[in-house]
């Protein structure tokens, strides 16, 4: 029997991913959430789930260590990983946006400083319109950057927009919509075609 290894992004998407898999009858989310184990197997032995940081999901899947993964589109756009993404899961809906202070001070020298956890998305977005930018890569609390004057604007993920508002920021434009995606390794897609098809069909029905 073929076993599929599925990498699940920890954090924002984790709870919804597990609920989705549980509804599909693939795993028991309580076990996954209560234990601190980073890898669990379902009862039938058909699936093994590993829990990794969102940015690491494409890495595991691209190397074929995990056959499939559940991760946000934002992460896929940022990583540029060469993966198949046969299914949008409709979970973790959010937007990647450019945001700035309500009173955005012009810095007057035509160069935009952008703070972000998504340096590739930011560079691509502004590059496409010929806007020269200095991308400042941060690993969290990006909203602070414009407030403290580190950057003119930010490129970040927004779910409800509350954090932005609380810090006096507003959305200037939406770069892309993001939802959770099922991603599949190219080789696994062919070599474990039956198992991947079953997984896709079960998740698609939900």
């Amino acid at each position: 029997m073929t076993q599929l290894t599925i990498a699940i992004a920890k954090g924002r998407l984790q709870k919804e991913s597990l609920e989705l898999l549980a509804n599909a009858g693939l795993c028991d989310p309580r076990e996954a959430l209560s234990s601190r184990r980073l890898a669990i197997e379902d009862e039938s032995g058909c699936f093994r789930f590993i829990f990794v940081k969102p940015m690491d999901v494409p890495v595991y899947v691209e190397h074929g260590i995990a056959d499939c993964g559940v991760v946000g589109r934002d992460v896929l756009l940022e990583s540029g990983a060469d993966l198949l993404q046969p299914l949008a899961l409709g979970i973790g809906r959010c937007r990647i946006v450019v945001a700035a202070l309500v009173e955005m001070p012009g810095n007057g020298h035509g160069m935009l400083r952008v703070a972000t956890k998504y340096p590739h998305i930011a560079a691509r977005h502004f590059g496409a319109r010929g806007q020269p930018v200095e991308v400042i890569e941060l690993s969290g609390s990006v909203e602070l950057a414009p407030v403290l004057g580190l950057a003119d604007c930010i490129v970040d993920l927004v779910e409800t927009g509350r954090t932005l508002r609380d810090n006096g920021l507003r959305i200037i434009e939406v770069i892309a919509e993001s939802t959770g995606r099922l991603v599949v390794n190219r080789a696994s897609y062919q070599l474990k075609a039956k198992a991947v098809e079953t997984l896709t069909a079960v998740l698609d029905a939900k």
Binding site: H63, G64, R186, A187, Q190, L191
Partner: peptide, 11 residues
């Protein structure tokens, strides 16, 4: 055409 072999994560 592409050739995939069991055990290799890429073609």
């Amino acid at each position: 055409f592409k050739i995939y072999v069991e055990g290799a994560g890429a073609g």
